[in-house]
Design a protein around this nucleic acid. Sequence first.
DNA 1: TCTGCAAAGATAGTAATACTATCACGAGTA
DNA 2: TACTCGTGATAGTATTACTATCTTTGCAGA
Lengths: 224, 224
Amino acid sequence: MEYSLNIKMNEKLFLRNPEQTDLGKNIILFSIQLIHEKGFEDFTFKKLAVAIGTTEAGIYRYFENKHKLLIYITAWYWSWLEFRVITYTENISDPIEKLRKAIKFLATSVEDDIRTSHVNESILHQIIISEGSKAYLTKHVTEDNQDQFFKPYKDLCATIGNYILDCNPDYKYPRSLATTIIEMAHIQNFFMQHLPALTDFGKSKSESNILDFLEDLVFHAIKK
Amino acid sequence: MEYSLNIKMNEKLFLRNPEQTDLGKNIILFSIQLIHEKGFEDFTFKKLAVAIGTTEAGIYRYFENKHKLLIYITAWYWSWLEFRVITYTENISDPIEKLRKAIKFLATSVEDDIRTSHVNESILHQIIISEGSKAYLTKHVTEDNQDQFFKPYKDLCATIGNYILDCNPDYKYPRSLATTIIEMAHIQNFFMQHLPALTDFGKSKSESNILDFLEDLVFHAIKK
DNA sequence: TCTGCAAAGATAGTAATACTATCACGAGTA
DNA sequence: TACTCGTGATAGTATTACTATCTTTGCAGA
């Protein structure tokens, strides 16, 4: 049996829905590769067009500009991640174990999900680490936020926040702790890879250390 | 009596030392204003030249490109912040109080420091929140790191890491906890201002809440 | 006072980026 | 048959990110 996973995206993010055509799917597929390869600053629609074998104008029919495309990609990632977290933790009754498993999903690399042929999740995870925050670190966050572009991130944050409250209903900072887990999972990973002196994992360079750090941090914080 | 504070910067960051001439100081002064006003992506040397009343070529004599200028500015900030942390905590003997005070420095806005006439620290603090991470989130981090561009950040991280160890010599993640404090102080601040649903401080929008959250997090984490 | 040199100003030019616009073509549909 | 939809092809513009060169200004030393 074949599966396919479809995530409904905010329509304001694109001019034409990239999931509905071959060219659209190629734009997503190749942009993930190209952003990972060149970094977001050095990534252009011209280069993307050449990689796909289409023209610049073709890309502009789908996305207004490369920043919208970045937001699309990151929003997709948050939606996909929340889906995974919910799916794979829903049968866990112990809230502590549930939160522990969720943290693992947030802080661990992924294999490519075969249900989504036009997205390589393992490269996407790397992009989120290096480029993800650039989606909202702009002068137009407020407008973008009004257009609900960051809803998937907020939803994930709310979900994790509720898991935290299930462990300790009196904990005062569930959302801030949720974003701390998510952001630090990425930042510590980036530092570990590129600026190891800023972490305690420079020697082993192993993701499991980040996981240990985050678990230690979270479960001490919410201890009753 | 007048004070003046001088921070020695990595010479590879500039082509001509901006602290030694009027034009150089203006470049720093106006670039901080302009980056704050327009955001880093929309900030150009052309616009900076017009703001100062000089020419583009004039700016290029001091800085290779706008990214080097951003690194310069952020590195300056980290150096200045570490100086402040060390200066204002050195007379505190209780390690807990010392760390508490340090966290306060990391998580609180500043007034403009009159000892540095060409830098507006209060705007600079806002820039670090919104643009700071862009200094290292690039494809050329490794080369930049080899040139020691991030040493001031690492030094600050090491200093805070030692404060943490003074509180609990057995704590396993002093550096990662230090970067967590620093990064989350900024990210929670940004979220509180622009994406309040990602924090627990959306209503009050008060920095003191971030401080409470961070203290709670840190002192639970290092409790023996 | 003359000489020299460094900083800054003035101007020009180039390749790439970030778009916008227009026209043409082929496939599927009514 | 006509129509429209997605795509391709091509062209054009303003801005960005530089590099180069030539001139002027001011001050420092001989």
